[in-house]
Design a protein around this nucleic acid. Structure first.
Lengths: 221, 221
DNA sequence: GTTTTCCTTACGGGAAACCGTAAGCGATAG
DNA sequence: CTATCGCTTACGGTTTCCCGTAAGGAAAAC
């Protein structure tokens, strides 16, 4: 069984339920915090005291309040934690449903499990704990399917720059100047046009508006 | 103390925490359901059996799953419930944070309390219960303030139609034909242009792409 | 050294969007 | 009945976007 588990979750209601789920699952020792900064402190202390945590359960979005934080999101927390303790297991418990975001958690941050706050979330939490304990990863089949669907086109860094610029209201004809200033190549207007056309072609879209809507939906911008 | 309380909340984790909060508050009898339809059934049965509920605690958004429902949202549920039992107290517990929506709940549906799923939500739940028990309404001062400050643009049905059309790739010049077919007025191209300009003006945007991104962010499309 | 290939950039014609102005038209008041 | 107001629609000029084609330039192949 897990020896030490840390919960980083700002919502009191979720925090309570996670604790209860851990209890039901048979985890004896767990700590909980409401802020990312506190989580990082606890983890570094635990390492120094020779009793590191096995598992971090964390939310992704943390509300801001009148206690200013250095780390303000779950993804930042995970990155920071992994620098201290690369082998710690990570379970993300979040309301996030955008496929691209979830996909990135596994690929970039190599988390071990993702459970969406939803109908059967506590049941899924326990399944995820079980999976992690058996050195596997966990993602509900429902979410796994939606990730596959959204992976029709792989957005490059360059694509994201273009699409983000458009979504901020930049004129297409002004993008070349912007790219040049940022030393991003290619920066010719034709290349921008060509690339955008290529993306839209690949996704079977005709208009920029459609592309923006899609990217927002899957969470790449 | 409340004699009978019903909880309508699809997220298992939230449901558990609400139950615990009620327990802590000293409510002896509470029932809970995961679907709106079940909630309505329970309430009507309770009336017929002569032991109606005092209080309904409900979420606003319910995930769809493979169990099709007649009532799919908290607002619909509240409307339906109030027809059966106009004097029932309503506490809405939701992650919703849009001031306009919350404002409407009090004004149109005359709910008694709203607690946002947030940092201290369980504590607030108890405060809200206390308030309702004393025949008052409850809304956290933080949210009360944000409702007053809310000067965000209010999207009309018509706006949503236009923006949705764009986000689906429809050409602006084709929108008039679409509107006419759907009997939506005004349908002139100039009116469409004018309206879109008006919206962008109000939000300080210059391009459609920006507008689409914004609407996706705040969830109106 | 020349040719080929691939990628980037430049250019120009046509379509769509943008924007200001004017005309149409129903409701209401005088 | 006429005048005014508010709203919708029509029109035309300008800008931006779209898209095909061609020129430039660097790396690889011959």
């Amino acid at each position: 069984m897990f020896n030490k588990v840390l919960i980083a979750e700002d919502h009191e209601s979720s925090n309570i339920s996670i604790r209860k789920a851990l209890e039901d699952f048979g985890v004896l020792s767990n700590d909980y915090v409401y802020y990312c900064d506190d989580a990082l402190t606890r983890i570094s202390h635990a390492i120094r005291s020779g009793k590191p945590y096995d598992l971090l359960i964390t939310d992704l979005s943390f509300d801001e309040d009148d206690t200013p934080q250095k780390i303000s999101s779950g993804t930042e927390l995970i990155k920071a934690v992994k620098e201290f303790q690369p082998d710690i297991k990570i379970l993300v418990f979040s309301a996030e449903s955008k496929p691209a975001t979830i996909d990135n958690l596994f690929k970039e941050l190599s988390i071990d499990a993702f459970v969406r706050k939803a109908r059967r979330d506590v049941t899924e939490l326990k399944l995820a704990l079980e999976a992690i304990f058996n050195k596997k990863t966990y993602l509900s089949t429902e979410l796994r399917r939606s990730i596959q669907l959204s992976n029709t086109y792989e957005f490059k860094e360059y694509d994201i720059v273009l699409i983000t610029s458009l979504s901020k209201g930049m004129l297409q004809k002004d993008i070349p100047g912007y790219l040049e200033k940022k030393q991003i190549k290619p920066y010719g207007l034709s290349s921008v046009e060509k690339r955008l056309n290529y993306i839209k072609e690949a996704l079977n879209f005709t208009k920029n508006e459609q592309l923006i809507a899609f990217c927002k939906d899957i969470g790449v911008i």
